[in-house]
Amino acid sequence: MGKFFDAITPQHTAFIHHQKMFFVATAPLAPDTHINLSPKGLDSFRVLSESRVAYMDIIGSGNETSAHIRENGRITLMFCAFDGPPNILRLYGKGRTVLPGTAEWEELSVHFNILPSTRQIIVADIHKVQTSCGFGVPLYEYLGERDHVEKWVEKKGAEGLEAYKAEKNQFSMDGLPTALHSSAPGPTSLP
């Protein structure tokens, strides 16, 4: 049975830190648009306080999360136990995108090992935490991180990465602008 909490507890934080993967879900408000659900890995997630989290977001073929939270702020993060006792933990909140070159970037980036592939930091202010049984989540063995991103970044080079972001990361698949869009005023603020 699910349990709800108003804040992230130390036990929740310990569970989060143990996981090697998490999932991010966002959605635009329009009914004929697409919901986004993305898996995330690397050592990219940080619990900043009992009500704030952040993750380092690397360059990808899309930038749905940034577009959706720029539009409406809604974000859900989910962690599943793939080893040990079964458990699922969800964080519900309002998110925003923080871009390099801003004062907030300088404050947040010290919490991460910033990679050449780092595109932005996604921050979420959490208003509800839910845990549930996780009995249906299978057991998996963690074997390590993939090296594909590092090889891709090396092949692209700094100029190639900027060109790729300009081509692929300024709009969502539904045409919503992301925080990287050239007309965006910079990092979005919480609604």
Rank of each mutant, 00 (worst) to 15 (best):
T97H: 04
G84P: 08
L89Y: 02
P86E: 10
Y140L: 15
R74K: 14
R90E: 00
E50K: 11
A67I: 04
C133T: 13
L77V: 13
S66R: 07
S38F: 03
W105D: 10
G60A: 15
M56Q: 14
L89A: 07
V123G: 02
A81M: 06
G101N: 11
S61L: 10
F112W: 11
D57V: 02
I88M: 08
G101E: 11
L108S: 10
F79D: 00
P100Y: 08
V123Y: 01
L37F: 08
L99D: 05
F79M: 06
R52D: 09
T118K: 07
L108V: 05
R70G: 15
D57N: 15
G41C: 01
V110E: 13
G136W: 11
F135I: 08
S109T: 09
A54K: 05
F112Q: 11
T118H: 01
S38G: 05
R52Q: 15
L77H: 04
N87I: 07
I122W: 04
P116C: 01
V129T: 09
N87R: 15
N36K: 04
F135W: 13
G41A: 13
P100V: 06
K128A: 15
K40H: 11
D83V: 12
F112T: 11
V123T: 02
I122E: 03
L139S: 10
A67V: 00
D83N: 11
M56A: 15
G60K: 11
V47D: 09
L77I: 15
L139V: 14
A124M: 01
S117Q: 08
F79N: 03
G60Y: 09
N63G: 10
L89F: 05
P116V: 02
E107I: 10
R46K: 15
D57P: 07
N87C: 13
G62R: 14
G84H: 11
I75F: 04
G73T: 07
G62D: 11
P39Y: 03
N113W: 07
G84M: 10
S117R: 00
P86I: 02
E71P: 08
S51W: 09
T131S: 14
Q120I: 09
Q120Y: 04
Y55V: 07
F79T: 06
K40D: 03
K128L: 15
L37D: 02
Y92T: 06
G73I: 01
Y55M: 04
V137P: 01
R119D: 02
L139N: 12
V137D: 04
V137W: 03
S51V: 02
P100Q: 10
R119W: 00
K94C: 12
R46G: 06
Y55R: 05
P116G: 01
R70V: 04
G134W: 09
V123C: 03
S38C: 03
R46D: 05
I88A: 13
C133I: 08
T102S: 15
S51D: 14
M78C: 13
L89H: 08
L91D: 00
Y92S: 03
S109I: 02
L48K: 01
G95A: 03
L37M: 13
T97E: 06
K40G: 03
G41P: 00
I122D: 02
K128P: 00
G93I: 00
E104M: 12
T76N: 14
P86A: 08
D57T: 07
I121D: 09
I58V: 13
E104Q: 14
D83S: 14
H111N: 15
A54P: 02
E64K: 09
I58K: 12
S38Y: 00
N113L: 08
R46P: 06
